[in-house]
Design a protein around this nucleic acid. Structure first.
Lengths: 212, 212, 212, 212
DNA sequence: TCCTAAGCGAGACGGTACGTCCAGTCTTCGT
DNA sequence: ACGAAGACTGGACGTACCGTCTCGCTTAGGA
């Protein structure tokens, strides 16, 4: 997976908060960076967020713990970033049909929950967000913002097209659509099936656009 | 709070997973049981879920650690039950007006998130559910089931009354209504305001009952 | 072994420090008393003094812990008394030959160390004596005093007979004879063999009675 | 006392059973090692062997518990080594007079029992030896061996000089001399006085060397 | 004969030490 | 001046044992 991580890092211009210094001495190893992220993701996938330890990540990555802490301030920050890599790229559908666009977006979203790695991360992150405002901020402005931005784009095109009322509240819409998916995954412990996603989209769009 | 806990325990017939044995020997102390739950709730309220320790709970309850571990297998199980007590009693509104009933239920739900103690517990529990199927089961069949049962009752009365289609999917309805509240609290870090809850209820009921 | 304990108890008129009260109420059970002592001895034999627990003794004896604590103040007191039973009866030889008498006494003593139960008790008791003056007193005035009294009797007969100087110091003699046996057992971890006991007796008697 | 401990450690090349690995990584701290031993000795002196706790030692040494357990497997092992340091250095007298040499050795030995710290350790160690063959081995090959080696040296010089028979059994001699001191301390709860030590030495040497 | 006080087995109680584990930091090498 | 390795402090974890305290139930003696 190292290759994938490296290429995603490049694509998304991911940078550590403390980037490689330019001065003399041995430069930081990109390999170490990628190995740590890979190890973090793999371990979360295997044993779950809480059972992951920094010692474990360092050992799996073949790296000293100091090398981890030189780049991230703690376990949560590291895992947030690792998760961010997995979800950074999210295509925004634009088929000309609002209902179709929303549905595609939701199914992409659903696919994420069907991946055990991402799914397992999710619940840990929710707790981490409650513990630390810094993490909450990171998650909101990464993971969540990407999703909400995509959804908002689709809804705005829909409003421009006249499929939705011009005054539809994007915050309300986001919560009506994303909320049920989260609820189902976090509370009932597994992803929805596709038919249920269809039902959610149908009901929410109908609820938002009474005349439609 | 001990009194309240004791009476709630009685009312709800809350029992530990390993209830007092019926055989010979000194019976388990109800006072200790209540004191532990009280201490757990108070400490979560004061220092947050993660900073709570079993030693701290035992000390605050004036109880030995063994007495805690005799009843609960760990911190999470204990806190799950403590949370369950707080939310066990939830009045089911029945005003004759479906929209009004759903709204009242949601506002009761909202009130829970506005209480820092319950709110703080929630995110920890979500993570705990992901860690352990036993906890997940406990939360689902307590905390969650109570809420969903109440909601379902209201919807069924609504369907009987003709306010909602007879074939409305109760699972879908539950997720459409509860999901946004959870999403907002867990992801955006604070409860909705009442106006937003009105918006959610209006949109969802409209989405479920197109002709209404 | 219960039978043996009961009969030894009777023979030696062993009584607990807090004997059954004479008043009304159910009298203390002799069976329980003997079962506890037996269990204590057996467990020491099997797992060693330190690994013995009061819960273990009570369980093995088929007795409640309160029944144990009603009779003895703690583990050490109980084990001291249990050991006392094993060694209460010690025949004092009187063959008319001082060297022979001392030797017989020492070999009896030796036999005690060769019994794993008594041997294992011994080292635990030494530590217990250091911890508590009450135990030290109990051991000294039971276990130890019995041995030293026997030895002193033999030496006095020897002095009367003219085999030993009249002014031989009985304290010195006791320590010269018993010391090496203890030292060997406690420090080197096993009993002397009989030949070595012969050597000790020969050297000590010669040292005490220069002209002999 | 840290200085003293460190210098004794160096002099005697004392090493933990699990010595600092030679490979990469941070080496074990000599300061921590010495601080732990010092704390152990001081605490035994102050509160007695049984009341010493590992938490207490770690706290007094200003060290985490893991640092203690990385070096020693438990309380007993630690205290054995601490005691070993106290008695490592024992001068072997060589005055040219065998009786005098033995007496000096015994009085040095006696002095040890007169120190409350060492004395208190002793009885705990005896019990520890019975519990664990590893501890027994450590005590025998340290504490005890040093004493017995010194005594043997003196006796051999005496035999060479003709003060003692050439065939005197060194094991027998050791036990005859050391046994009474141990017996007195462990069983009667206090050290001999010097006059009694004179008596022991006189009797034992006379017993070993009949013609002397 | 019944009452009543004390003992009985069982096991929970408050405490306390144990030995393990992890987080986040620091220190030594070797590269 | 980086890298890996691993020891460092600190503190929570869950277990085990101690000596005490209830439970509901015998089991005598005295009334």
């Amino acid at each position: 997976m190292d290759r994938a991580i490296l290429s995603i890092m490049e694509r998304n211009r991911i940078e550590s908060p403390d980037p490689p210094s330019r001065g003399p001495g041995r430069p930081r190893s990109r390999e170490a960076h990628a190995a740590i992220l890979t190890a973090a993701i793999d371990l979360v996938r295997e044993v779950g967020y809480d059972a992951v330890t920094m010692d474990g990540i360092a050992a799996r990555a073949g790296v000293g713990k100091a090398t981890v802490y030189r780049r991230w301030a703690g376990k949560e920050q590291l895992v947030v970033e690792a998760l961010g890599l997995l979800v950074a790229a999210m295509p925004v559908p634009d088929t000309g049909d609002t209902h179709q666009d929303v549905l595609l977006l939701m199914l992409t979203h659903l696919r994420m929950y069907q991946d055990p790695a991402t799914g397992a991360l999710l619940s840990g992150l929710v707790a981490a967000m409650a513990r630390s405002e810094a993490i909450a901020h990171a998650v909101r402005s990464g993971f969540i913002a990407i999703r909400e931005r995509a959804l908002r784009g689709v809804l705005e095109r829909g409003a421009a097209r006249g499929d939705l009322p011009a005054d539809v509240d994007p915050v309300l819409a986001t919560e009506l659509l994303n909320g049920p998916l989260f609820y189902r995954y976090l509370i009932h412990g597994g992803p929805m099936d596709e038919a249920q996603v269809h039902g959610v989209v149908r009901a929410v769009l109908r609820g938002l656009a009474p005349g439609a």
